[in-house]
Amino acid sequence: MEIPYTVKNRPDTGIYNAKLGVWLFLASEVMLFGGLFSAYVLLRVGAQPGHWPHGWLDVRFGTVNTILLALSAITTLLAWAACKVREFGKFKFFHGCTILLALTFLGIKSYEYHDKWIHYEIQLKDGTFADGHLEEQDDKQVVLHGRIVKDEKDLYDLRAQKDIQLGEVKIDRANIVKMQNYGPWHNTFTAIYFTLTGLHALHILGGTLVIFYLWGPGSKMYKTDPERFTNRIEVSGLFWHFVDLVWIFLFPVLYLT
């Protein structure tokens, strides 16, 4: 038994099965991220005035990651083109680059996560707030690299404050009312930030695994059925480009505004 149109295009629709399949899957992905972006918009619009954070994420890391993903999108496309003109060596090179770029992206992303994880906001008994990266802590005191602000509101819009002085802040444990890091529970911004980028990172991871399979053990098919293999590269590339597309919106929405 053979299923028709796995390699050849069906004449009346003009495409092969897997390509239709991946576009349908991407349509559902649009709705998945669409739901999450809707949640983002509602949380942002519904936030109390002055409570939506600005400038919490490092634009430099975001920019580098944007460029990494754009480059990997290009190498994915070139890998497919190399398959198409039957240059297997170049395919191996381009998709090798894709995998390395994706892994670098994930590395930078996890560094950013770590940065938020060790970033603490500490409510003190005198009504002020200490905020900064944890340097060390023991039973008696907590040492942050950061600053103390009078009003919690001053911690939200970092872009509006031009001269933020950071230094070593030592805090007695006895003075602490509440100590919480910038994990997803911190506020709705960190919540949606971790959820959106986390789901996106899972997509990157999944895509990388698929591309790695096609680059390594899966590439055996190139020898037996190069046309079908090229189709696989194209279809996985479409997914990869979609992941890039999501990042194109995540970057401005989370880092720049």
């Binding site: 349908l24 559902s28 992905e29 739901g35 999450l36 949640a39 789901l199």
Partner: peptide, 16 residues
């Protein structure tokens, strides 16, 4: 295909 993903999104958010 198109109606379930928003619930999946909502499910992930509620799971969080």
């Amino acid at each position: 295909l198109l109606a379930f993903p928003p619930l999946e999104a909502a499910g992930l958010l509620q799971l969080m």
